[in-house]
Amino acid sequence: MNIFRFLGDISHLSAIIILLLKIWKSRSCAGISGKSQLLFAIVFTTRYLDLFTNFISFYNTSMKVVYVASSYATVWMIYSKFKATYDGNHDTFRVEFLIVPTAILSFLVNHDFTPLEILWTFSIYLESVAILPQLFMVSKTGEAETITSHYLFALGIYRTLYLFNWIWRYQFEEFFDLIAIVAGLVQTVLYCDFFYLYITKVLKGKKLSLPA
């Protein structure tokens, strides 16, 4: 485990906790895309099926369990507990445009044509684009709460840190996974515009708002 991977995991975990706490403390999921959260629940479920087949470490297992459990808790809060505060009118991204192509691609480009491996590949592809409904919602409403911006930054920087982890692993362990690397690059590129706004606005104490 190198420092980039560890910091990536910590930032991913922070993002998940920031979102859970934001919704729970404010008793509201305003400004949060339920569709993106649903996609993340699908991502974790399909990727971590190896919890039942493969043990890597106590760290690995506990993180997976926390990610899966918190993604379901978030979906439950948005679609059940705090349903009245969910802004479905602005959450209009068509998720089938993400699920269908990534599902097809995972059948075509994978490391091994087995059910578990195809599901893992699907989860990698789907994760790379799962934030789009959330980014679409922010661009549609033209603004995001500061706490939501922190959530998005932590979530975006996690995969960026993983890119450095993969460079490290290629250099020192001769390990590389082209599927994860390409998807990770796509995922990071999707956040670039948001990173720019976060650094130029949110870090200077302003609310993230887009020009009309």
Binding site: D9, D50, I56, N60, M63, F175, F176, L178, A180
Partner: peptide, 10 residues
């Protein structure tokens, strides 16, 4: 070699 099958990351 491509060793992507070792899924030891999160």
């Amino acid at each position: 070699s491509v060793n992507g099958l070792k899924h030891d990351e999160l």
